[in-house]
Design a protein around this nucleic acid. Sequence first.
DNA 1: AAAATATGTTCAGTACTCCGAACATTTTAG
DNA 2: CTAAAATGTTCGGAGTACTGAACATATTTT
Lengths: 108, 108
Amino acid sequence: MSTALADKIRDLRKSKGFTLEKLAELTGSSKSYIWELENKTPPRPSAEKLGKIAEQLGVTIEYLLDTDGSLTIEDAADARFYRKYKQMDDKAKAKIRSIAELWDDDSD
Amino acid sequence: MSTALADKIRDLRKSKGFTLEKLAELTGSSKSYIWELENKTPPRPSAEKLGKIAEQLGVTIEYLLDTDGSLTIEDAADARFYRKYKQMDDKAKAKIRSIAELWDDDSD
DNA sequence: AAAATATGTTCAGTACTCCGAACATTTTAG
DNA sequence: CTAAAATGTTCGGAGTACTGAACATATTTT
């Protein structure tokens, strides 16, 4: 069970030592709205706002939304691989993608 | 000179062969709203909605928002590949990772 | 050609995002 | 301790995200 959006924002904000006002200032928001995101149910911020918040908190919007639980241990290996993959040159990337296509066609 | 959110959604939708109604159905939206995102000025969707749209279009929310112009179309291709990769079974993942290791050793 | 179907556009209404400013509580200073 | 400052909470309202259903236009079928 992953933490909900509200808790993630609060935890990340505090771990960065930000007050409501500070995070609000950094993201062009009001502190009352940041408070609502952390406390009111259920928060449904605009992509724009959440993007700025994610940026200041050093995470992705996807992580905050947790659309596809990307926090398990196995996923850590995947994330590590992805970071490596992104640094490779286009030719290598394309080769790897074409190899991946093979498996993808089989399953399904 | 990055394409605006509206154009990105329309271009990606058409490249996938989706009608407004199809994309709406896939993302739990109304077709009228998808149309607004593509045509009305300026669209400011919720993170939740844009997340579902990004998922169906095979890109990240960050790519669609592209506030600081740091994301290229190649990044979107990478994100699409990564999404696919994550859904593969562990054996296939491991194989791909081991292949990636080879290239990584060569360069740099 | 018209009829049928698929796709795109418009519109009014509801619910919610987001703000400013007041109010409350905690923390720091004297 | 009290006063001041910092941080957190509540509230009213302006503007908008999002919908369903009607309307318009393009495409296909007979």
